[in-house]
């Protein structure tokens, strides 16, 4: 059997703010793990056989790995920028491949149908051309100059605007979205999707945000993002096949799916296939 090349990656396993001595029993790629606050106050993660797993706390979450991470967790420089509000959105479990959850996050063409009157609305369905690249230095997928008409782009937005986005995939189950920030032109709001792979067809999704918004109550920000994600949940649980196909032989990707195609190409090149289907059927 080929080695799971995703084993050495970092994955979110808990909200840092909810870490206590009692802890949380969860799983990572099929292995039961336990997450708790140790006596020294640091996060402690133990694997199925009781071994200590690598741990770090970043971006509101506890991160861990079943293997031996060669690199520190990816950087989100905006997370340390003064003036941003950091929003713990919490967890939502989805019966789907962790890779499908990320792919859906990278997709804008579904906004008018799934996030109707919030992130999109008919007749504004056209996806204009945008740019996608693999940034070799960082080894990340980037989509830029993504524009889409949005009736209500964010909790702080009133009325429809054309919103610009950038998408970034720094790890196989994590994605970061940069989005036009209405109160601060020139800056980008940061919305992330951190996915914890429980199994190849089951994941816990931890959205997190770093926003320039001093007005909106925190609970409203949380509810807005939970609304968006839960609207996606029934889609994710009803795609066939359950795993993410790396061969599009049974699909018809279009120019609007460019980010999805680039993401799948990047997964394929690195052998990041936990949660993927290799042969179309």
């Amino acid at each position: 059997m080929t080695r799971n090349t995703m084993i050495d990656g970092w994955y979110p396993v808990s909200l840092a703010s909810q870490l206590d001595a009692h802890g949380r029993r969860t799983a990572l790629m099929g292995e039961p793990i336990a997450v708790r606050r140790g006596e020294d106050g640091n996060a402690k993660v133990t694997g199925g056989n009781g071994r200590d797993l690598p741990t770090c706390i970043r971006y509101g979450h506890v991160w861990s790995s079943l293997g031996d991470p060669q690199k520190p967790l990816f950087a989100i420089p905006e997370a340390d920028q003064p003036g941003r509000r950091l929003v713990d959105v919490g967890v939502v479990r989805v019966r789907c491949s962790p890779l499908r959850a990320v792919e859906n996050f990278l997709d804008i063409a579904h906004f008018p149908f799934v996030h109707t009157d919030i992130l999109g609305a008919e007749p504004h369905t056209e996806v204009q051309n945008y740019k996608v690249e693999i940034r070799e230095d960082e080894d990340e997928v980037w989509a830029t100059q993504v524009k889409f008409y949005q009736p209500q782009a964010a909790k702080s937005a009133e009325g429809g605007i054309t919103t610009e986005y950038m998408y970034r995939v720094p790890a196989p189950t994590c994605s970061i979205l940069y989005k036009t920030c209405p109160p601060r032109p020139g800056e980008w709001d940061v919305i992330t999707l951190f996915v914890q792979p429980l199994a190849e067809d089951l994941c816990d999704v931890w959205p997190w945000m770093a926003l320039f918004d001093d007005e909106t109550p925190m609970t409203d920000l949380i509810h807005f993002q939970q609304t968006i994600f839960v609207q996606d949940r029934s889609i994710l649980e009803n795609q066939i096949p359950g795993l993410l196909p790396l061969d599009p032989g049974m699909e018809i990707p279009t120019r609007a799916d460019l980010t999805s195609v680039a993401y799948r190409r990047w997964l394929k090149r690195h052998g990041y296939t936990y949660g993927a289907q290799l042969v179309a059927q």
């Binding site: 149908f113 109707t116 008919e122 609304t227």
Partner: peptide, 11 residues
Amino acid sequence: MPGIHRLHELR
């Protein structure tokens, strides 16, 4: 509410 999609049929 989230999880109950719009009835697009109506438009």
